[in-house]
């Protein structure tokens, strides 16, 4: 990634900040001039239609792309993203991938242990403090009694919790999640959302999550970033999603806005 426009400036106000970030793979531009910033303990929901560039953005923040070039800057904990080694970055930012596809051939605990790689030494392996971090992560998501289950034999909902536990075990300040609740039933999706909100509020974990559940950011508050066609359509408080036809323009679709029957703000439903 190049950094012509914005020389790195330590900026501790924001834990993660992108400025005029654009990204190309070959000659195809996927992201165009994306700017946003989150503070420590923020909960940012990224919403937008399929193909908007949401996953690409998350992967850029994690430097998962094996090809492609970018302009603009990304700052993580005050330092330019490019100044991190992959290991250093993994200590600061953790990742929960989209569900589905290849299921790793590990038990829940062994899988979570893999996340301690950035902390462990190559020679001696995991230390007792690494093991403790793994146990705590499993306890937080409520999988302690399933620690020895193989990921392959779990239901989708349980497996997603195991992924969350693995990301927690990484012990980072920022967690990026790519549609963690996709393909989960309503109960498991709601469990996961509740768990994330709790983690965010109680441990001050900064959460950046791609979601298709527009009501989640409305319910929990926090920030929202709307992407469409690789461009930023809205960035600000989640309540702003209800105004000025933000969603209509981004999704090219009509929405109904309803009052929550129990007085918990408003609900949005695709028409």
């Amino acid at each position: 990634m190049t950094n012509q426009n914005n020389p790195p400036k330590p900026n501790q106000e924001y834990i993660l900040e992108t400025k005029h970030f654009s990204f190309w793979v070959d000659r195809v531009q996927i992201l165009n001039d994306i700017s946003f910033a989150v503070k420590r303990g923020d909960f940012l929901s990224i919403v937008g239609p399929n193909g908007a560039g949401k996953s690409t953005l998350i992967k850029c923040l994690l430097r998962l792309h094996q090809r492609g070039r970018s302009t603009g800057s990304v700052t993580v904990e005050g330092l330019n993203l490019n100044s991190y080694t992959q290991k250093q970055l993994a200590k600061v930012v953790s990742y929960v991938p989209q569900a589905g596809g290849w299921i790793p051939p590990f038990t829940v605990r062994d899988f979570a242990k893999l996340s301690r790689f950035p902390h462990a030494s190559t020679v001696s392996g995991l230390s007792p403090s690494d093991e403790l971090a793994v146990d705590q992560a499993l306890e937080t998501v409520g999988l302690t009694n399933m620690a020895k289950r193989s990921l392959k034999t779990m239901s989708g909902g349980e497996r997603q919790k195991a992924y969350l536990a693995a990301a927690l075990a990484q012990g980072s300040d920022i967690m990026l999640l790519d549609e963690p609740a996709a393909s989960l039933d309503p109960r498991h999706a709601s469990d996961l959302a509740t768990l994330l909100t709790k983690l965010n509020q109680e441990t001050n974990l900064t959460v950046i999550m791609i979601t298709h559940d527009l009501n989640h950011p409305l319910k929990t508050g926090g920030l929202a970033l709307v992407l469409a066609g690789g461009e930023r359509r809205y960035f600000g408080p989640a309540s702003g999603l209800l105004e000025n036809g933000v969603l209509e323009k981004a999704f090219q679709h009509e929405f109904l806005y309803l009052d929550h029957p129990y007085g918990q703000g408003r609900l949005v439903v695709a028409r």
Binding site: L62, R63, L64, K91, S94, W102, P104, P105, S115, F117
Partner: peptide, 15 residues
Amino acid sequence: LLTAGEELAASRGVK
């Protein structure tokens, strides 16, 4: 980590 998936490995600090 690589057996767990390439992206996952990279997100855990593997070059």
